[in-house]
């Protein structure tokens, strides 16, 4: 079974932490960071590996800080969850 793999890269220095991408993401893959960027904003970070590259987050992101990648892999892969430490 083919699996759609997605990946996002967030330009966290430009992120203003508006959180609009959180709701847009169907996989709940984005959360707010604990730390702040140089402008003083908490920023969006990816918190799980469920991204399928739907680009919803990037579409609603006002500041266009999210780059989205998508790859369709023919081989089935297990889902990998990254644990974020507090």
């Amino acid at each position: 079974m083919a699996k759609v793999m997605g990946e996002i890269i967030i330009d966290i220095e430009r992120c203003k932490g508006c959180e609009l991408c959180f709701d847009a993401c169907p996989k709940e893959a984005i959360q707010l960071s604990d730390t702040i960027n140089s402008k003083g904003y908490q920023f969006a970070i990816k918190v799980n590996d469920l991204c399928n590259g739907c680009a919803s987050c990037a579409l609603v992101c006002p500041d266009a800080v999210i780059t989205v990648y998508r790859k369709v892999d023919k081989t089935k892969r297990p889902v990998k969850v990254i644990e974020i430490e507090d």
């Binding site: 990946e7 890269i9 590259g53 780059t67 790859k71």
Partner: peptide, 15 residues
């Protein structure tokens, strides 16, 4: 970051 995915040919959204 999965470097296999983050390739130019896989971009679906970029600024």
């Amino acid at each position: 970051f999965d470097e296999d995915i983050c390739l130019a040919e896989n971009v679906v959204y970029i600024k």
